[in-house]
Design a protein around this nucleic acid. Structure first.
Length: 219
DNA sequence: TTGTGTTTTACGACCTCC
DNA sequence: GGAGGTCGTAAAACACAA
């Protein structure tokens, strides 16, 4: 690597990343790989004994930081910039290109992970909201049930009051009430639609009477 | 020290764009 | 058709618990 360029870059980076250069591997001290990778097809095709071109070697901190900075500027790599970077870092342009490819992949994964977390958190909020609304609906249905019951009670009282004395009417209503609401059913799904009010025992009604009765009970 | 999981480097296959 | 992109994966390098 060109020492002038390198020194310049290091000074520049050290301004941005004060902690970065505390333990840089000195030039020429790159450790040889512990294990050798199998020759790639490309290496085999090259057919040379010194396959150092194809050895995997970890980039130095300096190289990594320069590449990171360059990546921050622009994720895409034009060939001019690639050649310039490669020359500055003493790398093969192909290595720079590969590094950018891998870096883009990591960046994309990270972005996807962040998007996933955001979606998950908003989904969780929606679920909580749904539960809250459902319990509100249940509560409102309870209130509706009570109101209808109250209406029923009042309607019976009015009906009973028309023919009988107040005392006997009161007794009769209470009697009817137990048999009425003993059969009162709420749908399994909590829905009050299609609910039918049972008619009092020993009373016969034709279709129209029955309909009027049901309407009467409800309203 | 060693087994194992993770990260990094490198490549091939395939696709798109000019 | 070539350059450069993504995607999937191999293998080296590394971290770390047992």
């Amino acid at each position: 690597m060109n020492p002038t360029v390198s020194d310049h870059n290091m000074a520049f980076i050290s301004q941005l990343y004060p902690d970065v250069y505390t333990h840089i591997v000195p030039q020429g001290e790159v450790k040889p790989p512990k294990r050798r990778r199998k020759k790639s097809k490309r290496a085999v095709a090259a057919g040379d004994g010194s396959n150092c071109l194809f050895k995997k070697r970890k980039l130095t901190d300096e190289q990594m930081n320069m590449l990171e900075m360059s990546f921050c500027d622009e994720h895409k790599l034009e060939s001019e910039r690639k050649d310039k970077l490669a020359a500055e870092l003493g790398l093969d342009p192909r290595q720079v290109a590969v590094w950018f490819q891998n870096r883009r992949a990591r960046w994309k994964n990270k972005r996807l992970e962040e998007e996933y977390n955001q979606l998950k958190s908003s989904h969780d909020n929606v679920v909580v909201d749904k539960c809250r609304l459902e319990s509100e609906v249940l509560q409102l249905k309870e209130q509706l049930f009570d109101a209808e019951r109250e209406i029923q009670r009042l309607a019976e009282r009015v009906e009973g009051g028309s023919g009988n004395s107040p005392v006997s009417s009161s007794v009769s209503v209470e009697h009817n009430e137990t048999s009425f609401f003993g059969d009162y059913k709420v749908e399994e799904d909590g829905d009050y639609d299609n609910m039918v009010y049972p008619v009092p025992e020993n009373s016969y009604m034709d279709g129209e009477e029955w309909m009027n009765y049901q309407l009467n009970v409800i309203f």
